[in-house]
């Protein structure tokens, strides 16, 4: 059996050539979906009878939480693939997933805090979701810091992949623990997102936005991966050939 296609999956050059052109279209599509979803959520969705207009924050907050959590699993899967098959591309995907995930987690934290002010009357409440997201933010920060600490790229990649795997095993445990801890202390507040009470007119734009965030995440992952691949392989002939020719057409 011919396994060449499989090894191609690990080649940064192959990936760059395959994705370089259509990633811009994907990006344009993702941004369009985000803008449509935002307008839908801001102006065309009926307001919540309990929370009023502050409810509209859900359309940027919940997708950020969902995608940043899923991003951790994607990062760990890429890291595992890198460890198993020792391929460069998967390590690169893992290494760029960390900053993207960290920024999205931070976005989720900040929007959650701002949402808390009109809903709870305070910016910070040690609610189960917020606490868990904070811990998740620190998991991402740990991986970024570990990556920065090693000089050798390969060592950094393998150490980070290991940490990402350990983190992934721990995430459900941390989530359940924090949830249990929250019910133990039971502060009397209303939850930001109650699953059962959400009406379809409010749910459709939310589903739309979650989808838009996922598509945008995929696009960001591809473009960050390509940029990181170019940086990592800057000494190799294919990157040199791409850019060093000064007579070539202007590089975008």
């Amino acid at each position: 059996m011919n396994w060449q296609w499989f090894y191609q999956l690990g080649s940064p050059k192959w990936f760059y050539q395959k994705t370089h052109y259509w990633q811009h279209w994907l990006g344009a599509f993702a941004l369009m979906m985000l803008v449509v979803g935002a307008i839908w959520g801001l102006a065309f969705t009926p307001m919540d009878y309990k929370q009023g207009n502050s409810f509209r924050i859900i359309y940027v907050h919940v997708p950020a939480s969902a995608v940043s959590l899923a991003g951790f699993y994607i990062m760990a899967l890429a890291g595992a693939a890198g460890l198993i098959w020792r391929v460069k591309l998967q390590y690169t995907v893992m290494s760029v997933a960390a900053p993207i995930g960290a920024i999205l987690t931070f976005l989720s934290l900040v929007t959650g805090a701002i949402w808390g002010k009109p809903t709870w009357g305070t910016y910070w409440q040690w609610d189960a979701r917020i606490t868990f997201t904070t811990v998740q933010f620190f998991l991402y920060l740990g991986i970024i810091a570990l990556q920065q600490a090693y000089r050798n790229q390969n060592t950094a990649d393998r150490a980070c992949a290991m940490l990402a795997l350990v983190g992934t095993v721990n995430i459900p445990i941390i989530y359940k623990s924090v949830d249990w801890w929250y019910t133990l202390h039971q502060p009397a507040t209303l939850k930001l997102t109650e699953k059962s009470s959400i009406a379809p007119e409010m749910a459709y734009p939310l589903i739309w936005m979650i989808l838009a965030y996922y598509i945008c995440y995929v696009w960001l992952l591809i473009s960050h991966t390509n940029a990181a691949s170019l940086r990592r392989e800057r000494k190799s002939s294919w990157v040199q050939a791409l850019f060093s020719d000064r007579n070539a057409t202007k590089v975008t």
Binding site: V60, V110, W115, K117
Partner: peptide, 9 residues
């Protein structure tokens, strides 16, 4: 609050 969140996004 709403527009601050959207701006940060």
């Amino acid at each position: 609050y709403v527009f601050a969140c959207y701006a940060i996004t």
